[in-house]
Amino acid sequence: MKDVAIEIKNMSKSFNIYADKANTLKERIIRLGKGKKEVHHVLNNINLTIKKGETVALIGVNGSGKSTLLKLITKIIYPNKGSIKVRGKTSSLLELGAGFHPDFSGRENIYFNASIFGLTKKEIYKRLDDIIAFSELGEYIDAPIRTYSSGMYMRLAFSVAINVDADTILIDEILAVGDQHFQEKCMNKMKELKEQGKTMVFVSHSKDAVEFLCDRAVWLHEGSIRMDGKTKEVLKEYTKVCG
């Protein structure tokens, strides 16, 4: 069991959908007794074991539960049933630039952002040069980030997230970052991390990216695992069904 990075057992997740959510006391009292909520089952009875060093792609059409599964693995949300066990440190690249403060400089924001990932001051110092170099921001690193273009913002955010030294990296469809050149750089960096033996779970609609990076693919369909196997085979089936 030592070589298991992520272990999901009989896990289900549902959301309560309110037609119009009651956030205030007044609304809550008015709606008392009116059971207007609708339960939406996003994931049903998922069993998935990911070994250390594996690179797994999650594929599926929109709404199949891929992003929800990633959120559950990072503990942003919790399952209703079953269990999820994650060993080692995880870094999630679900959305970039968490905790960025527009009035502070790029350099200061590296501290904020990296510290959210649980890095200590020493660890951040050690990586600071790498992060700045990777972002290719040059002298702009000391300007407040409200002056950044959206591309610059994303580059900085990605540079921090990818340089956090985690055992497991979760990536959600964020490769639409920056220009062609930067995208290629990101892919190569991820390949490098894979070769270093990091565990990766990767959500993407880009078949090329999935084929380039992942050995194994899991196809989620309407909240259940439809197929789990070698990337090539799963992609072949997936293309047949979903085009």
Partner: peptide, 9 residues
Amino acid sequence: GGIIKKVYF
């Protein structure tokens, strides 16, 4: 709320 929905800490 923004960061709570984005990252775990």
